[in-house]
Design a protein around this nucleic acid. Structure first.
Lengths: 332, 332
DNA sequence: CTGAAAGCGCTAACAG
DNA sequence: CTGTTAGCGCTTTCAG
């Protein structure tokens, strides 16, 4: 039925060990017999069974990826970075969506581990105790991409969110704004949100402006949330004249919320986003945004993972990639 | 070291067959011994090795997915549909990017097959002979999602592109337009483009309007291509007053191209998109677009695949999902 | 440079 | 209801 290494061995008059050697590029094979085996492999259309190989060698050449939601451009971009580097190192990827649910994340870790993945790249807004526990329980290397665990004990790739946020707000401060809103995803738990908020606070502090909790609006990170945020915030007695949005989609919502009500950007309000996705160019005015190198974060995370999987030397387990502001027209 | 089914058997004083039975939910186990085994599993923190299981059972509970580019929202949405249904049926997904390159597609098929996936969902603009050949060579079921092979011999899930395009153009015709542009991805090979073009032609024909090749602009499907298309087309002696864009991103490019030059949508030109992605609501005016149910296409494709994998009865191997026009403000 | 043999961890008859 | 026994297809010593 399916043809195996054994069939090849028989047809080529060699042992299966020899076939295995040529399949795996082992040099200890006489060129002549290598050719002979290769010919038979070709003729029989033999295709090695990776599962059997995985069982015997205890290496599957596949890595697991846990992300919140692949249909979200943010994560999709990151996933692509991961996949490209994985491919480069001859790994395949088992892609799973967690929807940010802790129980799912734990369960996914477990099923990935049962599938004997050689490593895992994970994104999680919050590395809970349960997750940490699961991670500590295994020898399989795991690296976080665009995610932070408080204990700083899991390898990770990020940018310095706090610094980036600070810089964004300072950019707004430069233009003379005193009332700057910070609109972002739910501020409940996520570590990264907290870091951004801290950057926001530090920027204000540096400019001698009092922090006003009324200007901090924590919703979700969606377009409609941006519209909603604007609707709420502009009704304040002393409304913000500038907005720092947690991501681009949200920021565009803010812009449209304002524009739909006759306000002009950047004349009446200035907006700066975070992510610099393709979207940023697809609004009018085009959105000024902090460049979050999603693809690179994924790529570097995967590269880091390969080092762990190959027991290479690791210089730094917690990598921070550079970021910058992409100036466009939503900020003067 | 790693604990196996054998360890559990020993500790529980049963045979490994019994352990296997409880792990697999086989009913032929006395409740008492089941409890005993479960307790040991818990205590030893035993986790079945899916690779060994796959080798023995010849089922891996993983399916391969070949898409052009996961960082493209279009495909990401589809991938999510696939993943959700896969999860529902307890399959995991090996996700691979082909970048539409035939040689990569062929190679990916091969590596997925070597990994013994139980099935494959594939998206490909063009199912070439090579690909068809590779597919025919295996017993592993494969279904196409949002893709068509000319021979109609591979199961697939789509919408009726030709009809949808026809309807879109007719919508424009309704508003009295005589000069309607068809802007789309490269018209070179892709079957689906051809179908849309045909729908466009038929709509014109139905309205007694002569087909003008000058109004057909085949670029790529990107935002900038939309801008470019507008720049070129509006300079025509008799420029189009309405545009049918191959997808939303492209259509938004057209809108912005026009707006950036002082033209108004829908007053000066009307635009209808194709896809109805989240983007459609994120422009002003909001984009009227044909609803392409990407998520559903992925989901249904995966569901269809499960039927093949379980040898269930298949009513129809080539499924067509419904589509409709989502009316917004880029068309009067 | 090549072969023999022992597993990898689990499923699946087949007995009993 | 439970145990025994073969493999699944390949890698990996260990000899030679």
């Amino acid at each position: 039925m399916t043809i195996t290494i054994y069939d090849v061995a028989r047809e080529a008059n060699v042992s299966m060990a020899t076939v295995s050697r040529v399949v795996n590029g082992n040099q200890n094979v006489k060129p002549a017999t290598r050719q002979k085996v290769l010919a038979v492999i070709e003729r029989l259309d033999y295709r090695p069974n990776a599962v059997a190989r995985g069982l015997a060698s205890k290496k599957t050449k596949t890595v697991g990826v846990i992300i919140p939601d692949i249909s979200n451009v943010f994560y999709a971009e990151l996933a692509r970075g991961i996949e490209d580097i994985a491919t480069m190192y001859r790994y395949n990827i088992i892609l799973t969506n967690s929807d940010q649910q802790e129980n799912k994340e734990v369960q996914l870790l477990s099923t990935l581990l049962s599938k004997q993945v050689d490593g895992i790249v994970m994104m999680s807004d919050q590395v809970t105790k349960e997750i940490k526990h699961e991670i500590d329980r295994t020898d399989v290397p795991i690296v976080l991409a665009g995610s932070i665990d408080n204990s700083h004990t899991i390898p990770s790739v990020n940018i310095k969110y706090e610094e980036a946020a600070k810089e964004a707000v300072e950019r707004l401060l430069q233009n003379g704004h005193k009332r700057i809103a910070f609109v972002s995803g739910s501020l409940a738990a996520p570590v990264i949100q907290q870091q951004k908020l801290k950057g926001y606070e530090r920027a204000l502090e540096g400019a001698g402006i009092k922090f006003d909790i009324a200007l901090v609006y924590g919703v979700d990170n969606k377009y409609d949330d941006g519209i909603e945020a604007w609707n709420v915030l502009h009704k304040l007695d002393d409304p913000p004249t500038a907005y720092f949005g947690g991501n681009d989609e949200l920021s565009i919502g803010i812009i449209h919320g304002a524009q739909d009500n006759g306000f002009k950007v950047p004349e009446d309000l200035e907006v700066i986003g975070f992510e610099n996705s393709k979207l940023a160019r697809m609004v009018r005015p085009q959105l000024t945004s902090i460049v979050l190198p999603l693809y690179d974060i994924g790529a570097v995370a995967m590269r880091l993972l390969t080092k762990f999987m190959n027991n290479e030397k690791i210089e730094e387990e917690n990598v921070n990639l550079p970021y910058r502001i992409e100036e466009r027209d939503s900020v003067k």
